[in-house]
């Protein structure tokens, strides 16, 4: 069996104007290298397509070989490429039984919604595991929607978060609701 130390991990990000064939082109390059896609999230943001992948390879390998393969592909597609070597301790995750909460924040668009909300969460050591934002509504009445998934530290509750954010809700005149979405195992 392959030892964990024989495996190298890299974080790869690719961003550029959306069009059909981006994923096939990038993953084709990874396949040629014998790369595993261990974890990935790819999505369209406005007209841009953004890929974030954690890839793994057996030693011997180097970051430059990864870049040599992917850079020409990205250049051809007009996309930017980022590659970072991950250390073993960045790959290992702590097992926790945290409750997972979804926080919805929405209201009239204004500067600083994301900053003000996440600052309060950071101050209480609440870890964000997923976040997305969307500008909806009309040009006359733009509405900002912020959805966050967070892991609750020991002792925190959804009610506690709502209380923490109550002052902000008033100040920014936005709606904020918090609910538990911890997966149920059948």
């Amino acid at each position: 069996m392959t030892q964990q130390s024989d495996i190298l991990h890299y974080a790869v990000s690719v961003v550029g104007k959306d069009r059909p064939g981006i994923v096939a082109a990038i993953t084709g390059g990874l396949f040629n290298l014998g790369c595993n896609i261990a974890d990935s999230s790819c999505t369209m943001l406005a007209g841009e397509f953004a890929m974030i992948l954690i890839v793994s390879l057996k030693r011997p390998f180097s970051k430059s070989r990864l870049i040599d393969e992917l850079k020409p592909i990205c250049d051809k597609l007009g996309m930017t490429l980022g590659v970072r070597t991950l250390h073993a301790d960045e790959i290992a995750r702590q097992e926790t039984d945290s409750e997972i909460c979804m926080i919805s924040v929405y209201g009239a668009d204004q500067p600083g919604i994301v900053y003000h909300v996440t600052k309060e969460l950071a101050a209480r050591s609440i870890n964000i595991t997923d976040l997305n934002t969307k500008l909806i509504g009309t040009a006359e009445e733009p509405v900002y929607v912020l959805m966050l998934e967070v892991a609750l530290p020991e002792g925190e509750s959804p009610e506690g978060i709502e209380q923490t954010l109550a002052a902000l809700k008033k100040e920014l005149k936005v709606e904020i609701s918090v609910r538990i979405i911890t997966p149920v195992a059948f």
């Binding site: 964990q4 991990h9 974890d39 793994s56 290992a92 995750r93 702590q94 926790t96 998934e149 997966p183």
Partner: peptide, 29 residues
């Protein structure tokens, strides 16, 4: 409904509308 799906060889993976991997259960890759 989840258990009855098993009787038809259907896993929740066949019904997922949005995915979320087990961020906190997996220790390493």
């Amino acid at each position: 409904q989840h258990e009855m799906d098993h009787l038809d060889g259907v896993l929740f993976l066949d019904r997922v509308t949005s995915i979320k991997t087990g961020l906190f259960r997996r220790k390493s890759y």
